[in-house]
Design a protein around this nucleic acid. Structure first.
Lengths: 190, 190
DNA sequence: AAAATTTGAGGACATTTGTCCTTTAAGAAC
DNA sequence: GTTCTTAAAGGACAAATGTCCTCAAATTTT
């Protein structure tokens, strides 16, 4: 729980008292490997803070092909943010790829916090701005980096993901087929 | 100016009185074709609302190659949002591709509005959420659509851009070379 | 109007990536 | 320990895309 307090303090000037007054709006949630945090076409009702574990975010097209867009790891927020904001069905799926512990708040409780407290108004904007920045960074990577560069970035920034996720998911994250990922790994091992 | 009031009302419950009290924080800016709204590596100090015209958003890599990420059109906000939020140098460039009129607010004035008014706190969050959604949509397109699909989408959603922008810029927006764009147009014309 | 310059279309070939398949290795089940 | 199953690596060929170039049309300059 302390991790979460630290996270909030890193994005706002929330005091210990304010934190204690509002933490009761959150609850804990545990996921096993393979469990879904957000299912496709369901409205995402929660924002979660990852205390422990890893989630995979992916799209699924009509043909059933999956495209991994993100691996969410410890001490970060996770949600189908667009679905959450608009309270509309989600076009992305969030699934645990290992045992995962979350601190979650639902939509109504978050609106209550916004109404009740100025600091939570600020946190709400800061979170939206952060989510924007993460997404812009992601789009920038999609635009400017080759699959090989993305692989090397993953290796550097989230090496644990390469051990936990399977080849299919990593390939779809890089935007290539398994065959090409195999070629990339071959090149790198030289 | 009315367009801007309408825009704000579409994302918040701002009243006419509140609007009139805060509009003086904004000023007008005109750009000629080729003028920059945001230069590379400069801190973006403004958010603009496009009253008229079109801007192109692009990255430039070390080799001087440009990647167009967005064409911003009338009645939308435009800014290098990440640079604006963090007040750090921008990695994207915003350039008018035709004569453009903007309503702009600078960073300090926006912070004053946030401090002064609850409705502007809400607008700030709503804008961040909107920008997030646009960016997510963009990332989703990058992930899931082929260059041809992107071209057809542009044709449908922003047909004016195909007339105003040059081939090089459109190709870089689609993530392909001019040669491939030429092939795409050939296919479509059949 | 003629010349010069810029812009888009498209040919030829090389490179990259995908598709389909086989092989190998590792782990699970018996 | 042997067989079965699953996951990753990699071969062979096809398809898609990039590179480099030329040509034609349009636009600008003189």
């Amino acid at each position: 729980m302390d991790k979460f307090k630290q996270f909030l303090k890193s994005i706002s000037s929330i005091t210990d008292t304010e934190y204690n007054e509002t933490i009761s709006y959150f609850s804990k949630q545990n996921l096993l490997k393979g469990d879904f945090f957000v299912k496709q076409d369901k409205v995402c009702r929660h924002i979660g803070f990852i205390l422990k574990g890893t989630l995979r975010t992916y799209y699924m097209n009509d043909k059933g092909e999956e495209t991994t867009s993100c691996f969410c790891t410890e001490n970060n927020l996770t949600t189908s943010y667009k679905s959450f904001i608009l309270q509309q069905p989600s076009n992305i799926i969030l699934q645990a790829i290992e045992e995962t512990q979350l601190l979650v708040i639902d939509y109504e409780n978050l609106q209550k916090l916004y109404a009740k407290s100025t600091v939570w108004q600020t946190i709400g904007r800061a979170v939206a701005e952060r989510e924007y920045i993460v997404m812009e960074q992601y789009a920038s990577i999609l635009n400017n980096e080759t699959a090989k560069e993305k692989y090397l970035r993953l290796l550097k920034e989230q090496p644990s993901v390469l051990l936990k996720a399977n080849i299919e998911d990593i390939a779809s994250y890089l935007g290539v087929t398994r065959r090409t990922l195999s070629r990339i790994r071959q090149e790198i091992s030289k």
